[in-house]
């Protein structure tokens, strides 16, 4: 059975189609989920895509966390469902407390859009298992509020438990503490990343196909966990 991966669309989501396409290229079946859905339609994993959910009014991701589908998603994430939040999706995950810390205004105040080099730091999460630790990848980055912050204790905890999954290489694009580009929860099923792996899955449209690894990792971990057969 092909793994079914839900992609949630909020009003203002931008990258839901690209995320769904990345899921299909990795060998999964994409399932469109709507912010007002009362259930997750029995999907095996969920992607929260980039964009500007609810216009990013108030704070990025703040209003999205009260969407009906999010109540189900928070329970499911705490129960082990693989969830990947990209950019605005990462912001929704921190606002929902599925991941610690917060994303704040870029320290230089400019919206930044460029291809960004990252180093993979953890390959034990559901979304990074196909990478080698230390692998350098190049994927698009585009954000205005991508500065990852958390208190020192939380940052030390993330480092100590190996929960930083990717770090910015070269110039830090947004003032993120300790060059953090992405993190995972303690269980390794929930991952948030600020740059956009779903925009680097095909030679024609991306700088590389390095982003595909996040989606193939998911398929691999679902198969290994016996959730779906290969």
């Amino acid at each position: 059975m092909t793994p079914r991966v839900g992609v949630i669309t909020f009003p203002g989501s931008l990258d839901d189609k690209d995320a769904a396409r990345a899921v299909r290229l990795a060998g999964g079946e994409s399932v469109s989920l709507w912010h007002a859905d009362a259930n997750l339609h029995s999907v095996d994993a969920v992607v929260l895509p980039g964009g500007f959910s609810y216009g990013d009014y108030l704070r990025c991701g703040a209003i999205a966390k009260f969407a009906p589908v999010m109540e189900k998603l928070v329970d499911a994430g705490n129960g082990g469902l693989p969830i990947l939040g990209i950019c605005n999706g990462f912001q929704v995950l921190t606002e929902s407390h599925l991941l610690p810390g917060a994303l704040t205004r870029n320290d230089h105040l400019h919206f930044i859009c460029r291809d960004q080099k990252l180093r993979i730091e953890n390959n034990s999460s559901a979304w990074t298992s196909d990478f080698e630790v230390g692998a350098e990848i190049l994927i698009p980055l585009k954000n205005g509020e991508g500065g990852y912050v958390a208190d020192e204790k939380t940052l030390d905890e993330l480092e100590g438990e190996g929960r930083v999954i990717a770090r910015y290489l070269g110039l830090n694009p947004n003032g993120s503490r300790r060059d953090i580009a992405g993190i995972t929860n303690a269980r390794g099923n929930v991952v948030g990343i600020m740059p956009h792996p779903e925009h680097a899955v095909e030679k024609l449209t991306g700088p590389t196909t390095d982003g595909l690894g996040f989606f193939t990792s998911l398929i691999t971990s679902l198969v290994n966990n016996g959730k779906v057969s290969a």
Binding site: T104, R105, N106, D107, H108, L109, G147, V149, D151, G175
Partner: peptide, 13 residues
């Protein structure tokens, strides 16, 4: 308001 320990680039501008 942002907590005192959180950088406020808008305030700085």
């Amino acid at each position: 308001a942002l907590k005192p320990e959180i950088l406020d680039p808008q305030g700085r501008a």
